Amino acid sequence: MLIVAYDEAQILDIACPSGAFEAANGYGAAPPYAIELGTVGGRGVRSSAGIGVGGGRRLAAVAGKLDTLLVVGGPGHEKAAGDERLVAQVRRLAGTARRVAAVCTGVFVLAAAGLVDRRRVTTHWRYSADLAARHPAVAVDPAPLYVHDGHVYTSAGVTSALDLTLALIEEDHGPTLARQVARELVTYLHRPANQAQISMFLAAPPGGDRLVGDLLGHINGHLADDLGTRTLAARAGVSPRHLARLFARHLGTTPARAVRAARTEGAAHLVRSSGLPLAAIARRCGFGSAETLRQAFLDHYGVTGDRIRRMPDMPPPRERPGAQTPGT
């Protein structure tokens, strides 16, 4: 496992994969991951946070077969993609690697090396249009958290590096070890590849309405609590009618429908990432019964919880803002 870094790299892009692979070793990954940092000249690099990261292997000195080559992203990606020495070494090393990965804007380096032409990739949503414009031969999909196309893996911004790494660990050692690593890192869940980078429930509302944004954060963090419209309005210090107007204006939906969708999506992720029975998941996510949750899955995804558990990827929601749905 060789992680390629450069000046002005995002330190989380380095820490998330290396920390997750280290945790996998602690839980008995066999064979264990040998984690190394590689840079041009083997020198240390300065992260975008100003924190120095000690040097590792000199890229030109790395020889033999690699298991995984991973290029990190960060504000320095443009300069890195224009560094002929770095790009040439990444191109050479990719030819020896079982798989090649990029976190966030690290894909710009892969693109500069010609490694993702005619491949589907993703990157941080903010840079997707730029990537597509600079590299028209690359199929850029700005929506998913990560994409797997052949032996190439790319991820969206920053913390999605952890989701990608958990997927790689699961591919190598199975879901049990990946779940142990997720628990060790105290991450809520292993988000599926096709979960949108920006969902209507986590993104800042159009117009920058802080009240709505704060309530969405509260909803997602307190799914089992009383999230009725009156309770949410009281928390926000507005009338229920005014709260309904704000949700309609900024999200195109009602408070009750936003709560129901958030609870349903949270429950779906627990179905996929835990062995809890449906009744326990229903309680944790604020549903009155397992039957109510089953109906919510059918309304939101068009499939049952058992089907969601068996599917290789999370099904896309079929609900859309503005449609009528039952209350929570």
Rank of each mutant, 00 (worst) to 15 (best):
A80F: 11
A161G: 15
H173Q: 10
A139I: 15
A80D: 14
E36W: 08
G52Y: 02
G73Y: 08
C104Y: 01
R99I: 02
L162H: 10
V87Q: 10
T123C: 09
A156L: 09
R85G: 15
T154A: 07
G76D: 11
R46I: 13
A81D: 14
G54W: 00
P31M: 09
G42V: 03
P75L: 08
V121L: 04
V140R: 07
V138A: 04
A111H: 02
G114T: 05
I35D: 11
V71N: 07
R120L: 05
A63T: 15
R85D: 15
V147N: 11
H148V: 14
T122K: 03
L162V: 13
T105N: 03
E170C: 00
T96D: 10
L166V: 08
C104I: 01
L164D: 13
L177R: 14
G38L: 02
A49V: 12
L93I: 03
H77I: 01
L177E: 13
Y33K: 02
A63V: 12
V90R: 06
G106V: 01
D172M: 07
K79T: 15
T159K: 12
T165V: 12
L166H: 11
H135F: 15
D67S: 14
H148F: 08
G73N: 07
G150D: 09
L86K: 11
L131K: 08
S160I: 11
T39C: 00
Y146P: 08
A167I: 07
V45E: 04
R119H: 07
P136N: 11
R85F: 03
D83M: 10
L37F: 09
V116T: 01
V121N: 05
T68F: 05
Y127I: 00
T96R: 14
T68G: 03
Y146T: 07
A167F: 07
I35F: 08
A80V: 11
P175F: 06
P136Q: 09
L177G: 12
R43D: 10
S48M: 12
L66P: 03
R99P: 01
G150H: 08
L145P: 04
L59D: 07
A167V: 05
V71H: 03
L145F: 13
V45H: 03
P75T: 09
R92M: 03
R98L: 02
P75M: 07
E78M: 13
L110C: 02
V45M: 09
G82I: 11
L86P: 09
H77R: 13
L164G: 10
L70R: 08
V103H: 02
K79Q: 15
Y33I: 04
Q89H: 13
A97I: 03
G73W: 06
I35L: 13
E36I: 00
P31I: 07
H124K: 07
A129W: 00
T165M: 13
V100Q: 02
L131F: 05
A60Q: 11
V100I: 09
P144I: 10
G41I: 06
A133I: 01
G50A: 06
G106L: 02
A60M: 00
S48F: 05
R98F: 00
Y127F: 14
P144F: 12
G74W: 08
L166P: 08
L93C: 05
K79A: 15
G73M: 06
V152N: 02
L162M: 15
A133D: 10
V72E: 04
G64I: 12
G56A: 05
A112Y: 01
L164F: 14
A80Y: 10
A60E: 14
K65N: 12
